[in-house]
Design a protein around this nucleic acid. Structure first.
Lengths: 151, 151
DNA sequence: CTAAATTAGATACATGTGCATGTATCTAAT
DNA sequence: ATTAGATACATGCACATGTATCTAATTTAG
C-alpha cells in the first residue's frame, strides 16, 4: 500500500457495515415476527402502488436494490402470492407490465404499520435532529450518482 | 400509522441501504476480480493477526458481523484453505483456539493491497474531509452499543 | 432489407444466509 | 454424585443471492 486510509475512513467503513447490518436486521426480524414478508417486498409494492398505470420490470429495477435476476425471481414469488400481476406489454413483446393487486395494496398497508414504526424507532428516535443532515450528506457523498427520492 | 417518519428519516433509511449496497458491491467485485476472497475474510484474518496468541471463536465472533453459525462455516472453509488453524482449547474442551497461519498472513497482506486501496477510492476520496465527522456521528447514533475500533 | 448488436426477462448453478436444532462440555446448585 | 441450565461450536434445511447464460424480441448499421 502506497498510501494508507486514515482513521476516519476506516471508522466510516466499519460503521457503515455495522449500522447497516444492525438496522436491517431489526427490520427483518420485526417484519418476520409480525408474519410479514421481507422489507424489500415493501419497496416493490410501494413502487407499484405509486404507478397505478403499471410499470415495466426494468423500470422498477432502477428504483430498487434488486439486480435484474433477483427482481425477476422476487416478482415471481409475489405473483404466485397474488400480490402483483404481470401482463404482456403491448408495445414490446419481450416485456411485461407489472401491476399491484388489491391483495398487494392491502399487504403494503399492513407492512407499513410495522415498517413505518421501525423507521421511527430505529432511525428517527436514534439519530438526533441536529445530526441528520450530516448523516444524509455523508451517505450521499458515497453514492455520487444518487439523485434523491421521488416525491 | 399513528405518526409518520419525516422525510429526513426516510432519506436516511434509503441512503443507508443504497450506500451500503453500492460500496460493498464495489469491494466484493474488485476483490473477486483480483482473485481474492470476500471482504469478510479480511476481517477474520486481521482479527487473528492482531491476536497472535490465538483467539476463541466466540471472541472473534463478537468483533465481526458474522453470526455464530456463519462464522463457524466460514472458518471451516478458511481452515480447509490453510489460512487458519483450529486447535482444541486446553481450558475448555468445547472450545477451539484459532490461529492465523503464514499463508493466512500472506493472504491478508495481498488482500490489503486491494482492500486498502478501495477504502481510499470508495470512501476517503468520495467523502470530503469536512463531511466525515458528521457521517461518523450519524452512523454511530444508529448503533448505540458500538464502542469504537480497537487500536 | 438483412445481419449484427442490444435489450428484456428467465433460469441454471454454485454459494451464502438465517434459523432452528444437535452434541458436547461446562458451571453451579442440590 | 446428580441434575438443571448455560455455553461453544457444528449442521440440516429452506431460501436468497450473484454470476453467467439462454431465448426471444427489438434496434441499429450497413
Amino acid at each position: 500500500m502506497d498510501k494508507k486510509p486514515n482513521s476516519e475512513t476506516t471508522l466510516i467503513w466499519v460503521l457503515l457495515n455495522i449500522a447497516h447490518k444492525t438496522v436491517t436486521q431489526r427490520f427483518e426480524t420485526e417484519l418476520r415476527r409480525a408474519g410479514l414478508p421481507p422489507a424489500a417486498w415493501y419497496d416493490v409494492l410501494w413502487g407499484l402502488e405509486r404507478n397505478p398505470q403499471g410499470m415495466r420490470q426494468n423500470q422498477l429495477e432502477r428504483g430498487s436494490l434488486f439486480d435484474q435476476a433477483n427482481l425477476s425471481r422476487t416478482l415471481k414469488r409475489m405473483v404466485d402470492d397474488g400480490l402483483v400481476t404481470q401482463c404482456p406489454a403491448p408495445e414490446d413483446r419481450r416485456g411485461r407490465i407489472l401491476t399491484i393487486t388489491d391483495a398487494g395494496r392491502d399487504l403494503r398497508l399492513r407492512m407499513w404499520e410495522v415498517y413505518g414504526g421501525l423507521m421511527l424507532s430505529e432511525i428517527e428516535d436514534k439519530v438526533p435532529a441536529h445530526a441528520r443532515q450530516g448523516l444524509i450528506q455523508g451517505l450521499q457523498a458515497l453514492v455520487p450518482g444518487f439523485k434523491g427520492l421521488e416525491p
